[in-house]
Design a protein around this nucleic acid. Sequence first.
DNA 1: TGCACGATCTCG
DNA 2: GAGATCGTGCAT
Length: 173
Amino acid sequence: MSRLTSDFYTQDAITVAEKLLGKVLVRIREDGTESRYIITETEAYLGEEDLACHASKGRTKRTEVMYSEGGHVYVYLIYGMYWMFNIVTGDKDYPQAVLIRGLANITGSGKVGRELGLDKSFYGESLLNSERIWIEDAPDAMNYLTAPRVGIDYAGEIWKSKPWRFILQTSEN
DNA sequence: TGCACGATCTCG
DNA sequence: GAGATCGTGCAT
């Protein structure tokens, strides 16, 4: 399988979130160990008008990377202890990102960050040429569910109810 | 310069 | 059901 290219990541966040299901996340650790995970759950955050998207607060030091071209990594610390793993999508200057909420056998975005050993040094890393983290192609997922996004009560009913959460259907659920 | 809070999880 | 724990955005 080959590494996903710029053409994939520059699509809109909703399309990327859907197509990432079933793809393979590869992580090379400091000791050289390679880990591979199938992506099973994602969420799309789309633009400054999406009140659930961090970029809705405008361009800041924290959201800066979302304004770059798709294919970069956006990580941030939540609740003082969990690193969320996001992938920037779309064209330059149009802030969008996809949150990786679950990998095979690892459910929950906080646990994903812990499992991958993320920290702020991953902020802005490029999945197109990184030596330690990238995503490889795989056949598109045939069966998946959609649902409202989680943990964004502050975003208001309109954005809160958008079905922008994608869940891969496996033999286990 | 200070403060309240969050795209969470684990334990009791 | 509450605590852990800290960077960020916004008020002072």
